[in-house]
Computed example of a mutant assay.
Amino acid sequence: MKRTAVALTGGLALAVTAAVPALADSHESSVSVLHGVPGLTVDVYVNGEEAIPDFAPGTLTDPLTLAAGSYDVAVYPDGSDPEADEPAISAEGLEVPGGANLTLVAHLAADGTPTLAAFANDTSQLEAGESRLTVRHTAAAPAVDVRAGGEAVIQALENPNEQVLELPAGTVSADVVAAGTDTVVLGPADLALAEGTNTIVYAWGSLDDDTLDLAVQTIDGLHGDPGGVPGGEAGLMGSGSTVLWVLAAAGAAGVALASRRLATHQ
């Protein structure tokens, strides 16, 4: 099973129409945000008030439930004075969809260009004793193979694609190598694949800049009540619907800031 991320290049409003398992309430969505652009930290404001200071690369937010609707946000380079400085990005009436489980990822394309992608997380029910492993290539790096126990279980995975495996629950020792070689670029790492969970592993950063790293997101509750809303363990931030969509904008701000810095240094 292989899926391609939906790149968001035309704005911040998110429209996901892929056929994915809906949440119990179609008027709400669960969204997590990964900041995967190295070297960029931002401050995020909502309605003129600082909501998220120092949103740093490598941070993966908690999965939060957000009511469908619209929000106004402004994002500044870390340490800026909003009374004196212009925001790196601002938007009014950001539209939030309902009925999906999503992860927004600000990351580097294969050529190192900052970009923003949205992934629909697979929350379909699993058989007893089974676990789901999702691997997403969101790093500035060529195609890779993912090995488990020394054998390639995923081959030639390219940015920004993902591959999903369903495996018996347990612990897997995995590493990431350049496609078709034994050259290790990440790992090895032990992954605890719990029953009834989707463990999502992101490779992010840059191979050339020696900033490659892994981020792990876990969505649980996939063997329980089919009418329930899957939960998760996804990071360091607190909860709150306003905070969630602000963080999504912060990921996009990383893209804008990176592009601005690249232009300045060229």
Rank of each mutant, 00 (worst) to 15 (best):
110 A>S: 11
102 L>A: 01
137 H>C: 01
103 T>W: 05
226 P>N: 04
28 E>L: 14
156 A>S: 13
150 G>V: 08
223 H>Y: 00
165 L>N: 08
105 V>F: 02
208 D>G: 04
149 G>P: 09
238 G>Y: 09
164 V>F: 12
109 A>K: 12
87 P>W: 09
40 L>F: 07
167 L>W: 07
20 V>Q: 13
215 A>W: 01
36 G>I: 05
144 V>N: 05
184 V>T: 15
69 G>Q: 09
169 A>K: 10
119 F>R: 07
200 I>G: 05
8 L>I: 08
92 E>P: 00
105 V>S: 00
186 L>K: 06
10 G>E: 13
232 G>L: 01
193 L>Y: 03
89 I>W: 07
24 A>D: 13
3 R>W: 03
50 E>T: 09
88 A>F: 04
250 A>D: 03
28 E>G: 00
33 V>Q: 10
154 I>C: 01
87 P>K: 10
107 H>G: 03
32 S>C: 15
32 S>F: 08
244 L>S: 13
1 M>C: 04
51 A>M: 15
126 L>F: 13
85 D>V: 07
200 I>W: 02
220 D>F: 12
178 A>P: 00
85 D>C: 10
257 L>Q: 15
234 A>C: 07
7 A>P: 14
255 V>D: 05
146 V>H: 01
100 A>S: 11
230 P>R: 09
223 H>G: 10
255 V>I: 02
182 D>M: 03
196 G>C: 10
173 S>N: 15
205 G>T: 06
7 A>L: 14
208 D>K: 11
53 P>H: 13
146 V>Y: 06
130 E>P: 00
76 Y>I: 08
187 G>K: 12
217 Q>H: 02
50 E>A: 11
214 L>S: 08
120 A>M: 06
107 H>C: 15
103 T>D: 03
215 A>G: 12
250 A>Q: 01
153 V>I: 15
185 V>W: 14
197 T>L: 07
35 H>C: 05
36 G>C: 06
165 L>R: 04
71 Y>M: 13
66 L>E: 11
60 L>G: 10
95 E>D: 09
